[in-house]
Computed example of a mutant assay.
Amino acid sequence: MKEISGVNLANFIIAGTEKAGTTSIFTYLSTHPSVCGSTVKETDFFRNSFTGNREKDIVSYSNYFERCSPEIPIVMEASPGYLGSGAEVAARIHTLVPKTKLLFILRNPIDRIYSSFNFHVGKLNLDSDLSFEKYIDKCIAYDSGQRTPAELGIKEWYLKIISFGRYADYLKYYYQLFPENQIKIMFFENMSQDIDGFMCELCQFLEISPDYFNGYDFRRINVTYESKLKWLHKIAVYFNAKSERFLRQRPELKQLMVKLYKKINQAREGYDEISDENRDRLKQYYLPSITALQTLIGTKNIPWNI
Rank of each mutant, 00 (worst) to 15 (best):
I58Q: 12
K234N: 11
P179G: 08
S69D: 15
P179R: 12
T299P: 04
V121K: 15
L152E: 10
N118A: 07
Y158H: 14
S79H: 00
P73K: 06
K138D: 11
I154K: 11
P303S: 12
S60F: 05
I105G: 05
L282M: 01
V258H: 06
P251R: 02
G81K: 12
K160D: 08
T22F: 05
M76G: 01
G16I: 06
E3W: 02
N222L: 12
F213K: 04
E277D: 05
V35S: 03
G298Q: 11
F132I: 03
N8P: 00
G122F: 12
E156I: 09
T17M: 12
N240A: 14
A267G: 12
Y142W: 07
V121G: 09
Y225G: 08
L130T: 04
S131T: 15
N214V: 11
F117Q: 05
L102I: 04
D169I: 08
G165E: 03
L9F: 14
I302V: 15
T27L: 01
P149K: 06
D194Q: 04
G298E: 09
I185Q: 11
D194C: 08
T43I: 03
P149T: 06
V35I: 02
S38T: 03
S227T: 11
P98L: 13
I235M: 01
G215C: 02
L106M: 13
I140P: 00
G37S: 03
S209N: 15
T148W: 09
L287Q: 15
S192D: 13
C139V: 08
L202N: 06
H94E: 10
E55Q: 15
F46C: 13
V59D: 11
D44R: 15
R219T: 11
S227K: 12
N305S: 03
S24M: 10
A267Q: 14
N108C: 04
F12D: 02
S243K: 05
F218G: 09
G37D: 02
F50Q: 07
T23F: 02
D57M: 14
I140W: 07
G52I: 11
G122M: 12
G86Y: 04
V97Y: 06
Y28S: 01
I297E: 06
N301E: 14
P210L: 06
A141N: 10
P109Q: 01
Q294E: 13
I302D: 01
R107F: 02
R268L: 09
L159A: 08
V59I: 14
L232R: 11
G145E: 12
S34V: 02
V89E: 10
T95G: 11
R279W: 03
Y28N: 08
A141S: 14
